[in-house]
Design a protein around this nucleic acid. Structure first.
Lengths: 335, 335
DNA sequence: CTGAAAGCGCTTACAG
DNA sequence: CTGAAAGCGCTTACAG
């Protein structure tokens, strides 16, 4: 590997001068500038980013931890964050845990080791020491979507899961449904708890009783949605409408529905949290709650840069609005 | 920030001993081990990963450059690569260019600065100096899906774009179509050229003439697919079948189709490269060519670790098989 | 405008 | 089993 010293030697200058030419900012005489540039060219020199990060005390990297890289919501959040990062001369590094808590711990530990300057946590399980350590070590951190309890003054960017869920379920109730089910997310997950609470609130305030067997907890991934929906559909008495925790579970649910030749919306109405590009084209088009994912990511980025620029963010809780897209997957019950 | 020296001081040992305790491998007396561990605990010490990388000469990171983080193909490749990486004690860092060549250059330059130990390039535009520099600098590199010409002995993991495209188009021809169109990818992209070539070969070997105006180049992203399909549908004489470069373009194409109330497959047959979870549920279910994305990623990872472990990979070109899923989006023409 | 030198925070032969 | 010290490859006050 050719280092800055090789370049300095070849150009007949000090390493300081080479650094100045390459990083700009400091004035260097035209003559030396040229010599350095020529040496860089000749030796095909590329500076070592790790060494630069160490001496600068910053990496220019934003870490984004996601649990599911395949979720379209994740991709849009990443885009929003990236655009904001690029604006500040940063790059974002996406690390995926793929729902594996051990991998998540590894990523968090790597972030805590200062391999990035700030961290955005998207739907991290928040379990364990990892996140707490990150924060204790003073790394600017922002939660996206959800935040574990008892973690102190860490900003959060999210939507109103509870309210949006309640609204969607009320829509089903207004359609005439009295026996509803839910494909819920893992109970440890705050958003899962919130969406379930919204579901329950809507039912209760309409005087409906939710049968416990109609609420199924699906582990994340389409497979979980499939299994949960199978359980619901195999009930002696099926609910007439189902609310799904998110888009990925909904896709799995659709597989179960098709397998059993259940008709949507004639036999079953379906609503889900989180929209996707293809939901409008599904047979029938899926009614869904859309979160402003791109804006969420951008907003998270802004909070991080506020902190990096020395500002205080404190215990911010930014709630962005959702949009409810009524399409064709819901109808009146018992038609 | 608490450093290894603080820990050493608190434990009354040398920094070397602290490092040995924390990194394992070297034997340390139980007494000192305990003192170090206690000091680490007390000071809440986390080692600086950047410094460790610099002195070790490796980062333990695999870089994955993608152009479209929202493409499901990308997500699956990432999963395959990650699983392989984790198996070797590595983490993978995903950097997205979002089709922006300037961002791509930045990412490549950051990788070239040795912030990662090896690099997988997924559908990079391959334009410009970035990739060449990476390789000249000796960073183990592997191309996924496609590889720019004239780059020497760099391994590639892909599927047979040309053959799979030809097979799919032949299927349309066998259905009776004689006037076909294509939503193609950017012409500079090798896979775009290959899929287009497959399309042309199938048509020519059936004695069909491809009208130039029926082949539209869509820039990537759903928007590009939408625009291209609009152009095709607004032709005085429409083709009766269209082959799409990939899933993302196909989604945009579906929007155009719906907007114009064109019926699939009655008015138009549609086939696309790249499958998604939801294609089976679209109205009608979309006939698609599936690539073994996960395996592609895993294979790419294996090649990288072969190199990192000192092996030679040379000019490998690994071709994995595709699967053609015939569903409901194709029919006989002019029904 | 320039260079010598200290320093970033680790790791790792080396000598004991 | 242990520590002093060199070294990884940069950056950046400091003095001129």
């Amino acid at each position: 590997m050719v280092s800055i010293r090789d370049v300095a030697k070849a150009a007949g200058v000090s390493t300081a001068t080479v650094a100045r030419v390459l990083n700009g900012g400091a004035p260097v005489s035209p003559d030396r500038t040229n010599r350095v540039l020529r040496a860089v060219e000749e030796l095909d020199y590329v500076s070592n980013g790790v060494a630069a990060s160490l001496s600068r005390g910053r990496t220019g990297l934003l870490g984004l931890l996601v649990s599911d890289i395949a979720n379209p919501f994740t991709a849009q959040v990443a885009r929003g964050l990236e655009d904001e990062a690029v604006r500040h001369g940063y790059q974002v590094l996406i690390a995926s845990s793929d729902f594996d808590s051990e991998r998540e711990a590894q990523v968090l530990s790597s972030f805590a080791r200062r391999t990035v300057d700030a961290v955005a946590l998207l739907s991290s399980s928040g379990v364990g020491e990892g996140v707490a350590r990150l924060i204790r070590n003073g790394l600017p951190t922002v939660f996206v979507d959800r935040r574990p309890p008892d973690l102190g003054e860490i900003p959060l960017v999210r939507t109103d899961s509870l309210g949006a869920a309640r609204e969607a379920v009320r829509y089903l109730i207004d359609l005439g449904h009295t026996d509803l089910g839910m494909i819920s997310g893992p109970s440890g997950m705050p958003t899962a708890a919130q969406r379930l609470a919204g579901f329950r609130e809507a039912c209760e305030s309409a005087g409906l009783v939710v049968r416990p067997e109609c609420v199924r907890e699906g582990f994340l991934g389409t497979q979980g949605g499939y299994t949960a929906m199978c359980e619901v559909l195999d009930l002696d008495r099926r609910p007439t409408a189902v609310f799904s925790f998110n888009n990925v579970l909904a896709i799995g649910a659709l597989q179960a529905v098709r397998e059993r030749a259940v008709r949507i919306p004639a036999d079953l109405s379906l609503v889900t949290f989180d929209d996707t590009d293809l939901f409008p084209f599904v047979d029938p088009p899926i009614t869904a709650i859309e979160q402003p994912a791109y804006d969420i990511g951008a907003q998270a980025g802004r909070l991080l840069f506020d902190r990096l620029d020395g500002g205080e963010t404190g215990d911010v809780d930014i709630v962005l609005p959702t949009e409810f897209h009524i399409r064709g997957s819901c109808g009146r019950p018992g038609r």
